[in-house]
Design a protein around this nucleic acid. Structure first.
Lengths: 332, 332
DNA sequence: TTGTATGCGTTATCAG
DNA sequence: CTGATAACGCATACAA
């Protein structure tokens, strides 16, 4: 069971076992001895004791990724990015969902055997509960002083989306906002409002909707059936955009002609739809990997905690066929 | 930093510090000393070393829940159930998404500092990679010999759904199957086929669809527009049922009258729709908590591993307004 | 009421 | 090439 047991059975010292099992025996242990040790370990079904190893090494090789919820492809992408980088560094990335979407606590966050914590889209109030003496990086949140953070250029994405619509002649624009309280959505709203203000000829409509957009339908139908209905919609999330697609079908509006639709996220896992959705691509995988990279820098002292680095990843408007010129001439 | 440091500063022994910090000092340490220790620990910002504690105690207090993906409310519910029970037992439940939905490996599953592993909806081939000398419980999968498992009565649920439809006069029934390769979906298909065979007067149609049902639309429209179209649909998942709702709108079919729809899962997080969806309720939270309970029993030796206990949770058909009597008289 | 001593299983240093 | 030996930080039995 333990390395000592293996040593006794293989008739070597325990340090020899350690050397062999860690692959550090070349030139120090004879091939024959090494083989005997390996065989014995296998025979006894030896499993390393990670607690002992961590105690000795001073690190555990595990990072905790804290997210609001697990039922969202966004966080799957963030984890994938972090896990990919972690795999090449010998770090495992494990996920803990807070379960409460806007992050009021307290939460039974596991504190065990961690090398660091990455908090993604976790409200500042909950982040404070994650300060448990471990390196901490915050993703996709309003950067707080003293904590390294990685964000995405949400504002720039929204600005590009609106500029695209306005350039195509759209003057009545609807913003369907996620009801979830999070920095990323607040930022979309803020920049939408700001952009609209600087274009006085644009009429803006705002609609709040629960994240699963089924209930949205009625309200959407009402807004889109009006005579001076919006000719374009910006949605906080691609899933919401799917709700708009559904409403368009019901109203017999052709997306891309009668109604232009832009989403947010553009995750590759999104189902292909017709017409293909124009969307602001948010680099969630990079967010995850850069987050982990920052955390590693923090641990190794490459990045000073006091420096409170804040990185911002660029976003991009991916233009597809769900947006077309405004049907303004006919409507006005 | 360490308990020894605290002891030195507080001018007590390290064992006193340990006693006080673990709340085991009543009647052994004077109140005054205890207060001094607490104050010193606070002052020095003492953080326990979990690796050392785990080594000493022989357990870590962390359970790993392995799931195919994190982008699914189903696994959020399973985690919630396990985490709730864990919280009352001092166990933290942490999630690792395999990232490949049908579980081909190998995966960088973190092996560190774990007391046990729960594999939920993980293919048998991948489960074998999780046998790392730790207690293991399998959820929502075909039970393998020698491994305790908890499943849900998927077959019974499907049978009840079909019986309900048949009793209401439906004779042409469509089963929209998830394209994901998993035991739970295979079981639905198996029982659907079996039930249909035992009712020769029922005509069955089968449709496979990707999990995000957008692409499903065309195929659904074709099937539901035919003159001898199905009058009822059973969907492998409530999300798929939403796709059927959308198609119904496009075809001007009223759900619950022209077309009856039954889903699977009935998660409380699902958005309210109109008409409310009849669905086979799958008890995911209980699955998670019973899974953890089984794991704890395994660890404490209450449950023998050789016993290979298999528990099956009951399922229930929740009848709502999306199902009505077959419009057969008019259609035939 | 408090302190001393021990060992958990590992890695790493150093002497043979 | 191999084996003693010393930490790592903690919890606890036992001595004082």
């Amino acid at each position: 069971m333990t390395a000592t047991d293996v040593a006794r059975v293989a008739r070597v010292s325990q340090s020899t076992v350690s050397l062999v099992l860690n692959g550090k025996w070349r030139g120090r242990i004879s091939e024959q001895t090494a083989r005997r040790v390996l065989a014995t370990a296998d025979e006894l079904a030896y499993r390393i004791n990670h607690a002992a190893r961590s105690l000795r090494l001073g690190r555990t090789g595990t990072i905790l990724l804290v997210v609001p919820t697990i039922a969202d492809p966004v966080f799957a992408a963030v984890h994938a990015g972090a896990a990919r980088l972690g795999a090449s560094t010998g770090l495992g990335v494990v996920v803990f969902p807070l379960g409460a979407e806007d992050g009021r606590g307290p939460f039974p966050v596991p504190r065990q055997a961690l090398d660091g914590v990455i908090a993604c889209a976790v409200a500042a109030s909950a982040v404070s509960q994650l300060r448990i003496g471990l390196p901490l990086v915050v993703l996709d949140e309003a950067p707080a002083v003293g904590t390294p953070a990685v964000t995405m250029d949400i504002g720039g994405g929204m600005a590009k989306a609106l500029a695209h619509l306005i350039a195509l002649g759209h003057r009545r624009i609807l913003h369907v906002r996620a009801e979830r309280r999070a920095w990323t959505f607040a930022r979309r709203a803020e920049v939408f409002d700001h952009c609209v203000l600087s274009h006085p000829f644009v009429t803006a409509t705002r609609l709040r909707c629960p994240f699963a957009p089924a209930d949205l339908r009625e309200r959407l139908l009402r807004v889109l059936a009006a005579p001076d209905r919006p000719t374009a919609v910006v949605c906080d999330d691609d899933a919401i955009a799917m709700g708009v697609y559904a409403a368009s079908v019901a109203l017999d509006l052709t997306v891309g002609q009668d109604l232009s639709v832009i989403g947010f996220n553009d995750l590759p896992t999104a189902a292909p739809v017709s017409p293909p959705l124009t969307s602001v691509r948010l680099p969630f995988e990079e967010l995850g990997s850069l987050g982990l990279r920052t955390l590693i820098g923090l641990r190794d002292g490459t990045v000073g905690e006091s420096a409170a680095q804040v990185a911002e990843l660029p976003t991009e408007l991916v233009v597809r066929q769900s947006v077309g010129p405004a049907p303004s001439a006919r409507t006005w």
